[in-house]
Amino acid sequence: MTNDEFIRRVIGKPWANRACDFNQMDCWGLVVLYYRHVLGKELHHIPGYESDADFITCYTQQRMKWQEANSAGVGCLAVFYRGDSPSHVGVIVSPGKCLHSRGEHGFVRVDSPLALMKIYQRVEYLKYGEI
């Protein structure tokens, strides 16, 4: 599936806590689907994620699999922080555009990371494996 095909398929889909399918997804579920269907990579499974484990616990378990990126390239994970705690993730799908699924009653959308910085204090960009 191409980047654009994936975006068209998920845009507007509802956010649902710990969901990871094409009907509904949370922010991490969206990242997992993107990596699986666009990049052909299966991300490390986090035990307890589907059972409503805390996001920070899941992120901490997963973080060691990722490396800091020099820039926000296509396919990079964007991690948004509130204070010192990561609280939201998305995928960079084009220069200056982040695909993400945000919050209760939210949905999948594309926003500028700069626009998201009105809500969060900082962002870091990570790459998985050899991306």
Rank of each mutant, 00 (worst) to 15 (best):
P86N: 12
H37L: 04
S101D: 04
C76F: 00
Q62E: 14
A53V: 08
T57P: 03
F107Q: 06
R63S: 13
I56Q: 14
S101E: 01
Y34Q: 10
S85T: 14
C20E: 14
F55R: 06
Y81C: 14
A72Q: 11
G29C: 10
P86V: 11
R36K: 15
R9N: 12
W15Y: 15
D52I: 03
H105Y: 11
G12Q: 07
L39Y: 08
V91I: 15
Q24T: 09
Y120P: 04
Q121L: 09
E5S: 06
V38P: 04
A78S: 08
I92C: 03
D54M: 12
H105P: 02
Y34D: 06
L77T: 03
H45R: 12
A69P: 01
R82S: 14
G75H: 06
H105T: 09
G106R: 02
Q67V: 05
N17P: 03
N23F: 05
Y35N: 13
I56W: 12
V32Q: 04
R109A: 10
L43I: 08
E130V: 06
K65E: 15
G12K: 00
R18G: 04
S71F: 09
R102I: 09
A16S: 14
W66L: 03
Y34M: 08
G48Q: 04
A78Q: 01
L114R: 05
V89T: 11
Y49E: 10
V91D: 01
H88A: 01
Y81W: 15
N23P: 00
H45E: 14
N70I: 08
Y34R: 06
V123T: 13
A16N: 09
I7L: 08
G129Q: 07
A78F: 01
E104R: 07
C76Q: 00
E42V: 13
D84I: 10
E42R: 15
